[in-house]
Amino acid sequence: MKNIVTVGISSLDDAKDRLAAAFRGEPQGNRISFLTVEQMWKTLSPKRAEILSIMAGQGAMPIREVARRVGRDVKAVHGDVHALLSAGVVDQVKGGVVFPYDAVHVDFMLGEAA
Rank of each mutant, 00 (worst) to 15 (best):
M1I: 02
K2H: 04
N3M: 01
I4Q: 11
I4L: 06
V5N: 00
T6V: 14
T6H: 06
G8W: 07
G8H: 07
G8Y: 07
G8N: 07
I9E: 05
I9K: 05
S11K: 01
L12C: 03
L12D: 14
L12P: 10
A15D: 14
A15V: 13
K16Y: 13
D17C: 00
D17F: 00
D17R: 10
L19S: 04
A21E: 14
A21I: 03
A22T: 06
R24E: 12
R24S: 07
R24H: 09
E26H: 00
E26M: 08
P27V: 02
Q28P: 08
N30W: 07
I32Y: 04
I32N: 04
F34V: 09
L35I: 12
T36S: 15
T36P: 11
E38T: 15
E38A: 13
Q39H: 05
M40T: 10
M40N: 04
M40S: 04
K42T: 15
K42F: 04
T43R: 09
T43Q: 08
P46F: 01
K47E: 15
K47I: 12
A49R: 13
A49T: 15
E50K: 12
E50W: 05
E50Y: 08
L52M: 02
L52R: 05
L52S: 02
S53T: 14
S53L: 08
S53G: 10
S53D: 11
I54D: 08
M55S: 05
A56F: 06
G57V: 11
Q58V: 12
Q58M: 10
Q58N: 08
G59W: 02
G59M: 06
A60S: 14
M61L: 11
P62F: 01
P62H: 08
I63P: 05
I63F: 01
R64I: 09
R64N: 06
E65A: 10
E65K: 11
V66L: 05
R68G: 05
R69W: 03
V70K: 06
G71W: 06
G71N: 12
R72H: 12
R72E: 13
D73H: 12
D73P: 07
V74G: 00
V74F: 05
K75H: 07
K75C: 02
A76Q: 12
A76G: 04
A76L: 11
H78Y: 13
H78Q: 13
H78L: 01
G79P: 03
G79V: 10
D80P: 02
H82R: 15
L84P: 00
L85R: 12
L85E: 15
L85H: 04
S86E: 15
S86L: 06
A87F: 07
A87M: 08
A87T: 13
G88I: 05
G88Y: 00
G88E: 06
V89I: 13
V90K: 03
V90F: 00
V90P: 04
V90E: 05
D91V: 00
V93M: 05
V93C: 03
K94S: 09
K94H: 09
K94N: 10
V97R: 00
V97E: 03
V98C: 08
F99P: 01
F99M: 02
Y101H: 14
Y101Q: 09
D102C: 03
A103T: 02
A103L: 00
V104D: 07
H105N: 13
V106Y: 09
V106L: 06
D107E: 14
D107Q: 13
F108T: 12
M109D: 15
L110H: 04
L110V: 07
G111Y: 08
E112T: 13
A113I: 15
A114C: 11
A114E: 14
